Amino acid sequence: MSTVSASPAAPAATAEPASAFARLRIGRIAANLALLLIVALWTFPTAGLLISSVRDADQLALSGWWTSLTTSEATGAAALGTAADQTDEDGQYVISGDILADGTSFTVSAVGITSREPGAFGVGEPVEMRDGGILTVDETGAYRWTSATPFAHERGPRVYYVASEPPRFTFDNYVSVLTANGIGQSFINSLTVAIPATVVPILIAAFAAYALAWMSFPGRGILVAIIVGLLVVPLQMSLIPILRIYNGIALTFGGEAKGYLGVWLAHTAFGLPLAIFLLRNYMVGLPREIMESARMDGATHFQIFVTMVLPLSFPALASFAIFQFLWVWNDLLVALIFLGSQDTELVLTGRLVNLLGTRGNNWELLTAGAFVSMIVPLIVFFSLQRYFVRGLLAGSVKGG
């Protein structure tokens, strides 16, 4: 009688899917960790700038933003009073004063009579001075130097101390920046430049993208190729020829060579290739059946564009709006050339550059000014960020 043995291949067949699942799970964990690292690298500088902008100026000069929640500690030195400052109190000669500057919030934790050991004695502990007498210092910095014999020194000895200060935060930095001369006008100038320079190219590019995607006419392929080629043209190479042409046109018609119209046209021209490229590739991927049904119902191209294509293309429009607004808001070169550098015309980036030149040592003002310039772009990005990835990916991979 023969027996049939169990096949040993069955466990191996189930082990292979389990191994593939484990590799897939490890790959997802690695991808999530890499994404988390990228987010941290982008977030930490912004968080550090925000924290630094609300820190006290003295603490910001002594330590980094990552220590903002810890107590600051510093060493210092101060000169005591001379014999001319002594008073006679019932036969005891006393020199008193304060080793801390007026208005400081530091608290003395230790004192010393040499720079090598600035914290040799605790507060309230009697310290025997080399010039005679006993010195005591309390935590507020007030000292009392007493002696049974009159003091005779003409130069006050130095005493060293260790002081600590709790973390302090203030909005005075923002008040100083926002009330600085010209900041408010520059902020309005930046908004005046950025909003039209974002809306106008989007409108023009939307019409052009629809025509290149859904209208048949001779040379359409050549136009698409030219637009793709314009994406690689650097701004710096074309800026001078465009400026010469613009100045020539302005002088011919008797207009001013510098003004908002010039900077709007320049930003529109430089932003159109990318806008048309993204929007055209997105519109090509829209369902053809919807377009054909609308045409069968007698809708014109303009009606299809306004009522159907624009609402469906909102993710792509939002993606380019973020790109264009951030570029225009942070721009300085184009604004200086086409708008000028006068106080009434200077944009916010130019004003902050001037602030950096005049107050380069005031880090608290520079960090507050930098974050003021970031507030509007951050609001725009977080308002439209849910459409950003979807519109950008769709506009990059779809085509026809």
Rank of each mutant, 00 (worst) to 15 (best):
I134F: 01
A299D: 12
G64M: 07
M374T: 13
I290Q: 13
G97Y: 02
I134E: 01
L212G: 07
I379E: 08
P157N: 06
I134Q: 05
F151Y: 12
V39R: 11
Y260N: 10
G271H: 09
I134H: 01
A209L: 09
V39D: 08
L203N: 04
V199R: 02
G229P: 02
A22H: 13
G357H: 06
V111C: 09
G357Q: 15
V175I: 14
S293Y: 09
W66S: 14
R55F: 04
V199N: 02
D297H: 05
V54T: 14
T344R: 15
Q92M: 13
L178K: 05
S190H: 05
S186L: 06
V309Q: 03
L333C: 08
F253H: 09
A34P: 05
T344D: 15
A152Y: 06
G369Y: 02
L365W: 15
V380S: 06
G400C: 00
G133A: 03
Y160M: 06
I29H: 10
Q303A: 14
V123P: 00
S109R: 12
T107F: 04
A213I: 07
A120R: 12
V175P: 01
S147R: 14
G259L: 01
L332R: 08
E16S: 10
A101K: 10
F171L: 15
L235H: 07
P8C: 07
P273H: 09
V175R: 14
T358G: 14
